[in-house]
Design a protein around this nucleic acid. Structure first.
Length: 399
RNA sequence: GGAGGUGUCGCCUAGCCCGGUUUAUGGCGCCCGCCUGCUAAGCGGGUUGAGGGUUUAUCCCCUCUCGCGGGUUCAAAUCCCGCCACCUCCGCCA
């Protein structure tokens, strides 16, 4: 029904444009005659152009009205779900792959501590003072915790650069157009921080400034795919998640993240999505975390994604897999809204945009702590991360 | 935050005071051709971008486009208002 209404709105819009163009053409022609004419002839012409002017204004108003109408209806529609996506809600995902094996702590003879307990032992996470200073769902990373985030950041960025990404440090405050264009002011709007005095939004992910980076641009097809790795803070109000994941730093109002973002030809989007997933898997494997790959169900895709793969890592103290990364193929949904096109042989057309988490700091940190903990409360550093921690093989308790 | 200035088709630039033969001037660059042992120079032509129509190989037609958005007017690059960006100076500041 919405699509039919959209078609009708498009017809009205096109009709109004055609009428306006024809009237305007006539007016321009007469205008030239007026400029040349004089005396009585000029007076006659002027009276005609006066009438025409009113008609042109009316037609122009109708063009704007029908155009805005069409645009509003179009933007309310979510992206089309890709073929093969499992149908259903949040719990109807399909598990595509399982990598690694969760540790058997019982066999090792000790009860695993949760990430908050480990964080306190290591002097790495200070939630109490986070709450004191900023409120619930805020934290300080201290000492080895801060070092760990810096190491993860550098490791993630180095990996991305090696894979051909251009590193970017983008602004974390953006104008409404950037937020709207990426699809975050729709059903996700209640989860977004807004600064009313300046009409700026705090981004929930670097996806926003990275997508808006090329807004209103026409890209060179030969330059595609354009791959960017953005490092930025992410701010989320987490409205409607009261009482959910309240312990530790699993669900917080702010965290830092290295995000991959790609602009590519629409025909290449599906293959690129697999590549993004591949880099995510590679990263989690390098961190020696057991994880699963989920094909997210249609009802859980959000406004902009046509398909979404989540990676869920094993969280020992919860005895289940929890989300650590997510990659979405947004096809041309964001590109249309942000007016990002490329010159293709068949003409200029919107590109496809895709995004994928490379490393969300807080969740990665808590996964590392829980999965690599030792009986004495120390935490083994996976080999791939050691170069970024001065060669250290373990984080050790400070008390 | 305050005062002043600037914004023109890749780059530079004329036009704005005084609205209409402006289809936005000229130069540079770029493209095509001529000339020429080769190259350069010289000569001739082309060159804002976007959307749509028609063809779909080219061509052709229409609309929009002088930072953005309004307004005045029969008619706006040109007059008026608002906004944005940049520059200079002052203030403040990691």
């Amino acid at each position: 029904a919405a699509v039919d209404a959209l078609g009708a709105a498009d017809q009205r819009r096109r009709g109004a444009i055609a009428e306006f163009e024809s009237l305007r053409g006539e007016q321009k022609g007469l205008g030239k005659q007026v400029a040349r004419a004089s005396g009585e002839e000029k007076a006659t012409l002027l009276s005609r152009t006066r009438q025409l002017s009113a008609a042109v204004k009316e037609a122009e108003a109708r063009t704007q009205q029908t155009g805005a109408d069409y645009d509003r209806q179009l933007r309310a529609l979510p992206n089309l779900v890709a073929d093969g996506v499992p149908v259903g809600g949040e719990d109807d995902f399909t598990v595509l792959e399982t990598h690694g094996t969760p540790r058997d702590f019982a066999a090792e003879g000790f009860e695993p501590r949760d990430h908050l307990g480990l964080g306190q032992l290591l002097g790495a996470i200070d939630v109490e003072r986070g709450v004191k200073v900023s409120g619930s769902r805020f934290y300080y990373l201290t000492g080895q915790g801060a070092e760990l985030e810096l190491a993860l950041t550098n490791f993630a960025m180095a990996s991305a650069i090696r894979n051909g990404f251009t590193p970017i440090i983008p602004p974390a405050l953006v104008k409404p157009e950037a937020m709207e264009g990426t699809g975050f002011l729709g059903q996700a709007a209640q989860d977004v921080y807004h600064l009313p005095d300046d009409d700026l939004y705090l981004v929930g992910t670097a996806e926003v400034p990275l997508a808006a980076y090329h807004s209103e641009e026409i890209l060179d097809e030969a330059a595609l795919p354009l791959r960017y790795a953005g490092y930025s803070p992410s701010y989320r109000r987490e409205a409607g998640s009261y009482g959910k994941d309240t312990r530790g730093i699993f669900r917080v109002h702010w965290f830092d993240k290295v995000e991959m973002f790609v602009y590519c030809a629409p025909d290449d989007a599906e293959a690129e999505h697999q590549r993004l997933l591949g880099w995510e898997k590679e990263f989690l494997t390098a961190l020696e975390l057991p994880f699963q790959v989920l094909d997210v169900a249609s009802g859980d895709l959000g406004l902009s994604a046509a398909r979404k793969y989540d990676c869920y890592s094993w969280l020992p103290t919860q005895h289940r897999y929890r989300e650590v990364t997510s990659t979405s193929n947004c096809t041309d949904f964001q590109a249309r809204r942000l007016n990002i096109r490329a010159r293709f042989p068949a003409g200029t057309a919107p590109v496809a945009t895709l995004n994928g988490t490379l490393c969300a700091m807080t969740r990665t940190i808590l996964m590392l702590l829980e999965n690599h903990q030792q009986a004495d409360g120390s935490v083994r550093v996976p080999a791939a991360l050691r170069p970024y921690l001065g060669g250290r093989e373990a984080l050790t308790p400070v008390r």
